[in-house]
Design a protein around this nucleic acid. Structure first.
Lengths: 210, 210, 210, 210
DNA sequence: GATGAATGAGCATTCATTCAT
DNA sequence: CATGAATGAATGCTCATTCAT
């Protein structure tokens, strides 16, 4: 450690070390998606990555850290897909709608990643102590929505409501859509997303045309 | 078996057997709420119930059956609380709002039960194969909402929308409310429920004042 | 106990008690034949007999005694079938041959009993201490053959050989025939028995036609 | 797996892995011989080997595989002892006799191994379904004898008989000899083997001195 | 006589983790 | 950097047996 440590507590990593980590995280995502969190033992993940079990322990402090990184990975992939699309929207109403539709679109093309996300969230849930990293992850989502909603309220596009609760609700609707799609894979995700977008629009917009 | 079996496949149970089963289910709920699904080993449940591990195996075919019964227990308790209240509502709009508020109210008084429910759902989730009993449980909820929504549509109280998607969405909003409350126990559940009720009302009602 | 005890240590048994015991022994035989010794738990045996587990414990000192009685039962059934037939034989050579053929014949009609016998012998085998009752059971068979063989030797029908070893060998040939039939149920038991009878005859008879 | 697998399905094994496996198999043999199959739990075997229980699971897929390997070990040891001796025999009659005597001789020096063999055979016996590996093991013995017997018949050394039945019978006589010796450890194995060899010779040889 | 409820030891197995090489 | 060998605790479950009713 010593000279390799940084002020933020993270070691400097070589390029090939990062590549190994990415490879392992990817194998972890695939394994959780395929076998569920309970079935995703380190040896199974190692097997899928074509490496030895010890390598995982070498690169990650433990299973927890690995799963945390997997969650981060998926979240950042989603954000990378959704945010640019939402940014193009004309106003907040349109942006909110676009968010929802874009997430639905992303889901359709990345079932495995979403499955892994859900699996990890489920598997690591321990009541009276929602894992730190999970709070961190969802918190940033809530704040993104909250800011959007408040901006819309300020500009008179949205009605008055508790932005925090509304942010939680939007995310809940998206989660619910995903969960339903997991249980019923043939479900029409696009139509569902459109219906949810409409629902949210009606629930949030200023009672306009008085 | 033989002469003890019934046409519905359930054995006749003595009073004291039912009492034991109820006691064990209750211990299971408490343990899952406290330690999460992963931490709710049979021995821990037995310990909490003050009985020997074997007793659980004696009364239940396995951990799966026990957890299934726990879910059933919680669901029927919720229904017992919510349904009578919703039944008194004047019309479907009011009934829907009452549903949401009543569930919120129930949650406040039964955190442990809800925690257990969430823990069991999380812990038994296996991708590509949502457990039969879980589908059964949620399905009945979806159908309840769907019927209410359709009735409201027929009577002109609700606008046109996909009742299935809306049912899933209402349930998702409630789940989200609960999850948020789990992460932030000091959160104002009552206000949250009211906000959700308002959200749903706006999203579903016929655009009356045209 | 007291006044009910007898000099030989066995209690006097009522008629219905004997009936129960016979019923349980029969269920034990059927269960071992069907599920193997390992699969023949007391509860399974009780289930097959249509009684409660406790009844077995009430009538037998334990699983060991029950299995012992089952072995006795099968042995005495076999003897009842074989001995009269062998008794009609003209001389010892003929009697020995008849023994072998009769046992083969009995096997064909009582696969279940033999299966149970083999299962119990297998399941209760503990090296460095062949169970007492098993020694007793086989010992009486060995002695039966030994007497027959010695009588034949005395009368010049059989050649000189160690009668004990020969007795063990005859029984081994029969056991082997049975084991083979278990592994290959379509095997022709009658032909096998005839071949074994011929084998034994050649191995034992006085080298007469010098 | 992947790159470590071979066309025959067996992984390449390091020297030290083979050593551990051999050590564990040896401990398994000793434990079964001493405590019987039922008493040979993995923890007892591990204890005897002076290792942790997990090591067994690490090297073998389960108890079944371990026991299978133990059987293979004993069989190959016996074959290594018996076959060279039998190969020196002048003709088939002599070879058959030598087989029997050599097996008897081997038994005297390897009681533990034979005890284990018998224990495993007994313990894994399940009616209506003799374990695959056991059939394979005995089948190869039967075929060995069958070939020898047929060769002898072809050369006129042996009389006409069903070679399969005779092979089964020879093996049964050897098994019987062993079982008797287990029950009566002081029994004269050498004399017994000689008597069996004589028995078999008389039963099989061409009725020469016509 | 009979029952069903309860016990508790024992089982095979899985797994995250550690460590010498 | 990477490996495979080893650990040992923990899990769900089975079962013969006991005992109050």
């Amino acid at each position: 450690m010593g000279s390799d440590s940084r002020s933020d507590g993270r070691r400097k990593r070589t390029f090939i070390e990062e590549a190994r980590r990415a490879q392992i995280v990817s194998a972890a995502i695939g394994t959780v998606a395929e076998a569920g969190y309970a079935g995703a033992s380190l040896s199974r993940i190692a097997q899928r990555a074509g490496i030895s079990k010890g390598v995982i322990s070498y690169h990650f402090s433990g299973k927890d850290e690995l799963m945390e990184r997997a969650v981060e990975q998926v979240y950042s992939d989603i954000a990378e897909f959704v945010l640019p699309r939402a940014a193009e929207a004309a106003d907040e109403r349109s942006s909110l709608r676009t968010h929802i539709l874009a997430v639905g679109e992303y889901m359709r093309g990345h079932r495995e990643q979403l499955l892994a996300l859900a699996g990890i969230f489920s598997g690591t849930q321990t009541p009276e102590g929602t894992p730190r990293y999970r709070i961190r992850a969802t918190e940033s989502i809530y704040q993104g929505y909250s800011e959007l909603l408040r901006a819309g309220q300020d500009r008179g596009v949205f009605r008055a409501f508790d932005t925090r609760v509304m942010a939680v609700s939007v995310q809940a609707l998206i989660d619910g859509m995903f969960q339903y799609w997991v249980a019923y894979p043939d479900h029409d995700l696009e139509a569902h997303a459109a219906e949810v977008a409409e629902l949210v629009d009606r629930a949030t917009r200023a009672d306009s045309p008085a």
